[in-house]
Design a protein around this nucleic acid. Structure first.
Lengths: 242, 242
DNA sequence: CTAAGTAAGTTGGACTGTACAACTAACTGT
DNA sequence: ACAGTTAGTTGTACAGTCCAACTTACTTAG
């Protein structure tokens, strides 16, 4: 029974003095910079007893039972500490826990995944953006963070096939070709212009602003996200490659 | 920096003597019984100091840092303890953690979600199957398990729209109308027969066996899952209601 | 033995939305 | 004026669903 498990290691019910795993939260934060998908990473400290000294890692850290009301609040706190922004999109990615992932002992991390617009990415610390090329990161990461990142990339790509998630990677005002470009960067394949426009416009997720983007050629209509919009789910994926 | 967070509460790096949250794993296990979607629940014990005495709850319990190699192994262990079966499908659902979800202190649970065929559901303990009517459970559950279950139901319904997940709810041999019925039970709406058949057959996930199911009327072809098949993702959802 | 009943499985036309490709529109620079 | 470039539209082909009618294979009642 669950009740017996919940008091195991204790002679008296409710005593709860058995060993507890470490509990952390890590955040995979994506943005589009320089026409590339990038992820925010930090460098691990070099102090004595620190695991993976100087390695790159996902921003994150221990849950603070005094400060953090819940896991999402903890993730938001980490996010704020690293970037000074509140992410317009924060979703749980999953959790990773094992006896061996942290040399300090049995540990479990709760991973979140966040999307922020390029123009909100003023870093407030020594964190840096690292480009994801060919669907993966060049650098090796500390702990099992490489695996967590790979999972986040896969989730992002998957969802981009059939949702409006990339909208959260856009600045306040953007054009349809801008948005299509972001879809193409994440999916790493070209999309049909006309089908893309029909789909996005009929999803009722964006609205035109009374302005055009002017450049070297024909001006493009500017749009913005409709307020309070949840991500939209399309009934089809974009037609898959091959 | 993450490194500073990872040693917070300790004067000396690596000491790690700050308070740790409780860590548990819970499993939401679904099966189709009596033409209904059902979930496996257990009753909480009544001992002194036990939270939610006699309430219904999801099967689960504390991670055992000595016994459990990782979270999935812990979930599989709980599953085995409750039903004596190895689930053909076990996927992570998410995690729930907060200061208030367990009266014994700050706690985080890692929730898994499992699908098993009706014919493998011989229970080995006092756990019981409870039907889900109208997309929700009648009974109130302990902790935040109601919320976790709601999330699992939503995830299941979502995925059933565009994947072959219900195949894991089927016995070894089944007919196409059987499979369609399971889809309809989970989605709680009727599906088109011809579109359903085309989709399933062209997904290359099942193969006919050299037998027919005979009944009161025209016999139906029996099929079985192709071995080692990962769930199939369709490029369209079933057309959603209105 | 036939007729009615029922569920399995097929067929065909309407409709929706993408693929592909050619087109028009609006601007810049020379 | 004209080439170059990107924004945005249009039209035909095709794929897959929706809907409905149909055929097939069996059981049971008379």
């Amino acid at each position: 029974m669950a009740g017996e498990d919940r008091t195991e290691g204790s002679g008296k019910s409710g005593q709860m003095d058995f060993p507890r795993p470490l509990t952390t939260v890590d955040v995979v934060m994506f943005a589009i910079l320089h026409d590339q998908l990038q992820v925010l990473l930090v460098q691990r400290p070099a102090g004595a007893g620190e695991p993976f000294p100087l390695s790159l890692a996902l921003p994150g850290g221990f849950v603070d039972v005094a400060k953090d009301r819940d896991l999402a609040a903890c993730a938001a706190r980490k996010l704020k500490e690293k970037t000074g922004v509140t992410s317009p999109y924060l979703e749980q990615l999953g959790s990773w826990g094992s006896a061996t992932r942290d040399p300090r002992g049995w540990s479990a991390t709760h991973a979140y995944f966040a999307l922020i617009p390029a123009d909100a990415s003023e870093l407030t610390s020594d964190a840096r953006w690292c480009p994801i090329r060919g669907g993966r990161l060049k650098e090796k990461l500390a702990f099992d963070h490489g695996e967590i990142l790979a999972s986040a990339i896969q989730r992002l790509r998957n969802k981009v096939e059939y949702t409006s998630l990339p909208a959260y990677l856009m600045p306040v005002e953007f054009t349809l070709p801008d948005l299509q470009r972001v879809y193409e960067i994440v999916l790493d394949r070209p999309l049909e212009k006309s089908a893309f426009r029909t789909r996005i416009l009929s999803a009722d997720m964006i609205e035109p602003v009374a302005k055009m983007r002017r450049g070297l050629n024909r001006p493009a209509q500017l749009y913005r996200l409709k307020k309070g919009r949840e991500p939209v789910y399309f009934v089809r994926t974009f037609n898959p490659p091959e």
